[in-house]
Amino acid sequence: MEVKLFYRTQRDLAFALNKLVDAYWKEEIKEDELIEGVKSMYENNQDKLRKNNEFTKVVQQQSGKRRLAIIGKILEIK
């Protein structure tokens, strides 16, 4: 699965993260690919993913608790 480095909006970023996590759950990609993909998206889109030390509202609404729990663990966010 190919991951873009830069996303235009928070909604686009949330959609891409959802696709990545869902592909992992369906066993279409391996754990290493999930971790690498999430970290590269975060490194290049920090301002769209987090504000005031938590996930942005748009990302929260689009992704849901289960996906954000996985993303948070990968990024070691509490």
Rank of each mutant, 00 (worst) to 15 (best):
W25P: 08
I71T: 15
E33H: 12
Q46H: 03
K73N: 15
D12Y: 13
T9K: 06
S63F: 04
V38D: 10
K26E: 07
G72C: 03
L20A: 05
W25H: 10
K4D: 15
N18L: 10
Q62F: 08
I70S: 05
N52H: 01
Y7E: 05
R11V: 02
E2P: 11
E43T: 14
N18Q: 04
S63K: 03
N44V: 05
D47M: 05
K26M: 01
A23S: 14
L75S: 12
E76L: 12
L34D: 15
Y24I: 15
N44E: 01
R11N: 03
E33S: 07
K65E: 01
A23M: 11
K57D: 07
K30E: 10
I74M: 07
K51L: 10
I35H: 08
V58Y: 02
V3K: 05
D47Q: 11
K48V: 12
N45I: 04
L17C: 09
I77M: 08
E36A: 12
R66G: 05
I74H: 11
F6A: 11
I29A: 14
S63Q: 00
K4M: 14
E36W: 14
S40H: 13
N52L: 09
N18G: 13
R8K: 08
R50L: 01
G37F: 10
K19S: 12
L34A: 15
N53K: 04
R11I: 07
V59P: 06
D12I: 07
T9R: 04
E33N: 11
G37C: 14
E31F: 15
W25R: 07
V59N: 05
E54V: 11
N52C: 01
G72Q: 05
A14W: 05
L75H: 13
N53M: 00
Q46C: 02
K48H: 10
I74C: 03
I29R: 15
Q62C: 04
T9H: 08
E28C: 08
E43Q: 04
E33L: 14
D47Y: 08
E76C: 09
K39T: 15
A69S: 11
I29L: 13
K51D: 03
V59Q: 06
